[in-house]
């Protein structure tokens, strides 16, 4: 599957013009992306460390995870919107960048994992789930989102 049309569309769109026109605007959107990273990271860390039995122990998993999921939803929207804008300035470069591809695969897997596996499982019976399933989910989630963030950072160096 070749997605070059998507990158070509982005390159020709007004988003690319806007992202290339003003350095100051670009920095502000980068900051929004970083604040989104921090917010998503915070929600993931609190929820996953609770699943691992490290943080917020003694409080029901369902309470911690439900609150964290609400924050996660906001963060992922901020990240995707700001990310599209940032990609607009360098879309053709990103098409050929392996780290960007790695990040997008990680992001896709992460979103499927969160909304199709994790959230439904935890929403139903979070406090009755086997502790090992919880630990497994917590670990998988931490590894996944770390990979997305780290490969994202490495786009800039590659």
């Amino acid at each position: 599957m070749d997605f070059i049309w998507l990158f070509e569309w982005l390159e020709a769109s007004f988003i690319a013009d806007a992202a290339k026109a003003y350095g100051g605007v670009y920095v502000v959107v980068q900051t929004a992306h970083l604040m989104g990273l921090a917010m998503l990271g915070g929600m993931v860390i609190v929820a996953d460390l609770r699943l691992l039995g490290v943080l917020m122990t003694g409080f029901p998993i369902s309470t911690v995870v439900r609150n964290a999921q609400r924050g996660f939803n906001v963060a992922i929207v901020v990240l995707v919107l700001s990310g599209i804008f940032l990609a607009g300035a360098v879309s053709m470069k990103l098409y050929y960048n392996e780290m960007f591809l790695a990040k997008m695969i990680g992001l896709g897997v992460g979103i499927l994992f969160v909304y199709l596996i994790r959230a439904p499982l935890l929403a139903r019976e979070a406090d009755e789930l086997s502790p090992w399933l919880c630990r497994l989910m917590g670990t998988a989630s931490l590894v996944l989102w770390f990979t997305v963030a780290a490969s994202g950072r490495w786009i800039g160096f590659s």
């Binding site: 970083l34 604040m35 990273l37 921090a38 917010m39 998503l40 990271g41 915070g42 929600m43 993931v44 860390i45 609190v46 924050g71 770390f146 963030a149 780290a150 950072r153």
Partner: peptide
């Protein structure tokens, strides 16, 4: 430095 934002600012934001 940048990825630790998720730990430090992440906790601060919560």
């Amino acid at each position: 430095h940048v990825l630790t934002l998720a730990v430090f600012l992440g906790m601060l934001i919560v």
